[in-house]
Amino acid sequence: MWALSSTPTIPGEFPCQSIFKNFNHLFWRAKELGATDEQLESFPWIIWFIWKARNEKAFNGEEISALDTAQWAKSEADVWKMAQVVSSKVDNDVLPDIPSQTDEQRIWPQCHTDASWDKTSNLVGLGFHLDNEDGLSLYGAKTSNNTQSATHAELDAINWAM
């Protein structure tokens, strides 16, 4: 995986069997050895996608190739880098002052829902939090038979809260 990335490798030193030595190399030694910021900026993404590929194999029995993992990590790192450029440009622009809603402008009651879903579980968790204009709150939670997807679970929570 590391050989397919832009992160400089040193045979016998990085990568190696010691996770501590590998992280030492990535965080401190690689820069001292002349690696550029551009070469190093994707390594957190690489680590994350190695972890995700490991989980796919451990929990779902699916093996993701090193090439696919490297491409996936590179793609996500590039998207993140582009998003940072757009965010910094927006932050520098002058934004209009948008007044916040006052309690009088809010529509009451307010209901917030959430669900917990796992495709391998037989159950789904549903919850709600209902506030009224007097400051009183009502909470609810329950389990139910699992549903088809996380989106369906969220819809179940809304329907149950109503």
Rank of each mutant, 00 (worst) to 15 (best):
L155D: 03
Q105M: 11
I10Q: 03
W72Y: 10
T120H: 13
V94C: 10
G12W: 03
T120N: 14
I158S: 04
S42Y: 03
S144D: 11
I158V: 14
S65T: 13
V85I: 12
R29E: 01
M82L: 05
L67Q: 07
F27N: 15
N22S: 09
L136W: 01
V86Y: 04
T36W: 07
A153D: 02
N55W: 00
N132K: 00
E104M: 05
T9D: 01
T7D: 01
D68I: 04
P109N: 06
N122V: 08
D93K: 15
D37V: 10
I19H: 15
Q110C: 10
P99S: 10
A58W: 08
I19F: 15
E133D: 13
D131I: 08
I46K: 14
D37R: 11
D37M: 09
A73Y: 09
W2F: 08
F49S: 04
P15D: 11
I10S: 00
K52G: 03
C16A: 02
S87P: 02
N55G: 07
I98V: 12
H129E: 06
E63L: 01
D91H: 09
A35N: 10
L4V: 05
H112P: 04
T7L: 04
F128M: 06
N24M: 00
E56Y: 06
S88D: 12
E76I: 12
T9Q: 11
S65E: 05
E13N: 05
C16W: 01
H112T: 12
W2S: 14
E56V: 01
F59P: 14
D156L: 12
G140N: 05
G12F: 03
G12N: 07
S144T: 09
S137A: 09
F59R: 14
K119A: 11
Q84N: 15
F43Y: 15
M162G: 06
L123F: 10
W51Y: 07
D114I: 05
N60C: 13
F20Y: 12
A35C: 13
E38P: 02
D68S: 15
E56M: 10
A77L: 00
K21N: 07
L136M: 04
K119G: 09
M82E: 06
P15Q: 11
A77I: 01
S5C: 15
D114W: 02
I158H: 02
G127C: 05
M1T: 03
Q71D: 11
G135A: 01
L126Y: 07
L40V: 02
S5G: 14
L95R: 15
N55T: 02
F14H: 13
L4I: 02
D37G: 14
Q84G: 13
S121L: 08
M1D: 00
K89L: 02
E62V: 10
N92S: 15
S88M: 10
W108I: 14
I98W: 02
H129T: 11
W28I: 09
I19E: 15
P8R: 00
Q101E: 13
H112Q: 09
I98S: 05
N22A: 08
M1F: 03
F128T: 03
Q71R: 11
D97A: 12
P109C: 08
